[in-house]
């Protein structure tokens, strides 16, 4: 019976991991598209605002669909992350007096904190760029260009974004590589998802996003 099957899938650590990987990839896809969208700022206010308008008005339903899928993904991703983290920590109640890392990377060992940072960022970010709760006085719905340029004059806003993108970059550097294995994509023989792929994706995403706030802050875009 299907239900029990899904239940058992979710109950198993590998099941949860597969969910993390899948939702992770949905988010990866999103951030890549999102990043490309943001880069349109370099082709001027009209262009990017039009793009936004297009998203919100012309294909509004699609946008909502996307929002819902994203929301579900983030939630599943977070719930799985928390549950797995608790299982993993419970697996070693007594630690070592001395432990030498052999292979674990900064990225692999900061997935949880990085994830938490991303969670906080996303919350902040939505209040900032979508609802405008952070500084309503300067926020004008629809004027993406204005909102961006406005907010990234402020050093601490820029700083938050820059740091968040570092977290994202690291998260993806390990995540993209490891998710290939979680999904069992890589075959010993043909090994499509090796480090390079993860490195390229994470660097592109990190750079593509970080460019915008910095460009504005340093006044290349105004």
């Amino acid at each position: 019976m299907a239900v029990g099957r899904v239940g058992l899938f979710w109950r198993s650590t590998i099941g949860k991991k597969i969910v993390m990987a899948a939702t992770g990839w949905i988010m990866v896809a999103f951030v890549i598209v999102h990043m490309l969208g943001n880069l349109q700022i370099f082709s001027g206010a009209a262009k990017i605002n039009a793009y936004s308008a297009f998203l919100h008005n012309s294909i509004g339903e699609l946008l909502w669909a996307a929002r819902i899928i994203l929301l579900i993904s983030v939630l599943l991703h977070i719930v799985a992350a928390i549950q797995l983290a608790r299982i993993d920590m419970a697996a070693r109640p007594v630690g070592y007096a001395r432990k030498q890392r052999q292979a674990a990377t900064v990225a692999s060992s900061t997935m949880r904190w990085g994830g938490l940072a991303l969670a906080l960022f996303i919350a902040f970010h939505l209040m900032h760029m979508t609802t405008g709760t952070i500084h309503p006085e300067t926020f004008t719905p629809g004027d993406v260009y204005g909102n961006l340029v406005g907010s990234f004059q402020i050093w601490w806003v820029t700083l938050i974004y820059v740091l968040a993108m570092i977290a994202l970059g690291l998260h993806l550097f390990h995540g993209v590589w490891s998710s290939a294995r979680t999904l069992g994509v890589n075959r010993p023989a043909s090994n499509p998802f090796r480090r390079p792929v993860a490195t390229v994706i994470s660097v592109i995403v990190w750079a593509g996003f970080t460019l915008v706030p910095l460009a504005i802050f340093f006044g290349w875009v105004r």
Binding site: S12, T13, I14, G15, K16, K17, I18, L84, I87, D88, M89, A90, A91, R92, R101, Q102, A103, A104, S108, S109, M111, H174, W177, S178, A180, R181, T182, L183, G184, V185, N186, P188
Partner: peptide
């Protein structure tokens, strides 16, 4: 615990078994 692919195990395994076997287990699962 669950595997987050730290790759520590592969380094210390006296028989140098590769974490490819974990990927395989995940795919079979």
């Amino acid at each position: 615990g669950a595997c987050t692919f730290h790759g520590e195990c592969q380094e210390v395994c006296p028989k140098e078994i590769s974490i490819d076997v974990i990927a395989r287990m995940n795919r079979d699962f």
